[in-house]
């Protein structure tokens, strides 16, 4: 038997009996990991007031039109987060997610507000059902559906989620995650992401929050396990 092994164990801290490596720097987890749905809603930076106002008042202003909110953009810019926030704020609203493959879910046409995620994936039959819906509609889509919505009597407000967000909004979104992961929220100033850094992140990742979070996850992990600098150099 030839034995020329090389063992390289990159686990940051011993398992089982070890304390949390995050606790050493004042956290209970990496702030930039996946969140539960509830937490995602709680930490989202969404100015919901104007959106709710639009959904509630359009019918009064233009009786012939039904309000439709369209969140348009590619993956990672916050379409689903916006839909989840609105779902939590609109009593009785139900969100339907359309997967790329597999069975197409039925639309809850009896709900007071219909929320459809990944609407560009709907088959023609389901889309026809959605366009016949008479209540306020909120959709998340990669493809602009304005034309067919207008044709079917909707007044459409399109929010281009990929449009550049102000640095302070990006900083706020990231700092909320940090605050929710601290053992003592009083220590937030030490770890806060300043607007200038958020601006550089925004530029580097073209406003894609998911990519920013992935970058910051790795940077924070290095900070905890390898004592790299925090905040990272961008």
């Amino acid at each position: 038997m030839i034995h020329s092994g090389e063992l390289r164990d990159r686990t940051p801290v011993a398992t089982a009996a070890s304390p949390s490596p995050y606790a050493v720097v004042g956290f209970w987890r990496n702030p930039f990991g996946e969140l539960t749905r509830d937490e995602r809603v709680r930490l989202a930076v969404v100015e919901a007031g104007p959106l709710l106002h639009y959904l509630h008042t359009t019918k009064t202003v233009t009786p012939a039109r039904v309000p439709a909110l369209q969140f348009l953009g590619d993956c990672g810019y916050g379409k689903t987060t916006n839909l989840l926030v609105l779902e939590s704020l609109l009593p009785g609203a139900r969100r339907v997610y359309y997967p790329e493959t597999g069975p197409r879910p039925k639309l809850p046409l009896d709900s007071p507000v219909l929320i459809v995620d990944e609407a560009q994936r709907m088959g023609w039959w389901r889309r026809r059902e959605m366009l016949k819906y008479h209540g306020p509609l909120v959709i998340g889509t990669h493809k602009d559906l304005t034309a067919c919505l207008v044709q079917n009597g909707f007044a459409v407000w399109t929010i281009d989620v990929a449009q550049s967000k102000p640095s302070h909004v990006v900083a706020d979104a990231l700092n909320r995650r940090i605050a929710a992961s601290l053992l003592d929220v009083e220590t937030l100033p030490t770890y806060r992401i300043e607007d200038a850094l958020a601006g550089r992140l925004n530029e580097r990742f073209s406003g894609n929050l998911r990519r920013m979070e992935a970058f910051l996850y790795d940077a924070f992990q290095s900070y905890v396990s390898e004592s790299s600098a925090w905040p990272p150099v961008v």
């Binding site: 038997m1 030839i2 034995h3 020329s4 092994g5 090389e6 063992l7 390289r8 164990d9 990159r10 686990t11 996946e34 993956c75 997610y97 997967p99 790329e100 493959t101 597999g102 990944e118």
Partner: peptide, 22 residues
């Protein structure tokens, strides 16, 4: 992370050991 067709699989190797047998 994510679900359905929006899911992403993340993998990282935390322990590596290589040995020549022959």
């Amino acid at each position: 992370s994510g679900s359905g067709s929006n899911s992403t699989t993340h993998r990282t190797t935390v322990v590596t050991h290589e040995q020549q047998l022959l």
